[in-house]
Write a protein that binds this DNA or RNA. Structure first.
Length: 175
DNA sequence: CTCCTGTATT
DNA sequence: AATACCGGAG
């Protein structure tokens, strides 16, 4: 649900969604129109509805697999959703990389000597940055940080713990 | 107008 | 690399 969708928007519909479809079995038997009616405010609802139902159908027997390859085979499961599911859902020590994490690392490492990487290298960077333990806590902290402090526009650098060594803040124009 | 806890297709 | 999918918030 969080793909290209802000968390407050997801929060608004999540309660109704989970009450209507508490299990993958329920999703497998969902009426497509009713499902769309609930998730419509998220946008991307056609893809999402089809994916929810297909994932339900394919995992109703046994629930969501914890296996990396089986998860990746499911519709609309790319690198981000795969790692987010394994980390947040199943407690594996996995990095995440999305537009928030990309923005945070790009700022912190700006003009630091490690500020030039392509998309593939961002995942490599995320792997390097992952602490030895508590990946889940670290990743959630990263997302909260990107949402509340290191925002896309007008970040709250005056409240940021990292401003002392952040390349973005250190290179800013005014004082 | 751009962007958001992206993915699949071209 | 570019685009479609999509509503909602800034």
């Amino acid at each position: 649900m969080l793909k290209q969708t802000r968390s407050p928007t997801v929060h608004r519909i999540y309660q109704e969604f989970i009450e209507e479809y508490p299990t993958v079995e329920a999703l497998a038997e969902a009426d497509r129109e009713e499902l769309i009616e609930i998730i419509q405010p998220l946008g991307l609802y056609n893809y999402r509805a089809d994916a929810f139902i297909e994932i339900g159908e394919r995992t109703a027997d046994g629930g969501l697999p914890e296996d990396e390859d089986l998860l990746s085979d499911l519709p609309q499961v790319g690198p981000y959703v795969l790692n987010a599911t394994l980390c947040f859902g199943f407690g594996e020590e996995r990095p995440i990389m999305d537009t928030n994490v990309e923005r945070i690392y790009s700022r912190v490492f700006q003009n630091s000597g490690v500020d030039e990487f392509d998309e593939g290298d961002f995942w490599e960077l995320a792997e390097c940055m992952l602490p030895e333990r508590e990946a889940r806590q670290y990743n959630l902290g990263l997302l909260d940080f990107g949402y509340s402090i290191c925002t896309h526009s007008s970040p709250s650098c005056d409240e940021c713990f990292a401003s002392e060594y952040c390349g973005y803040y250190q290179n800013r124009d005014d004082g």
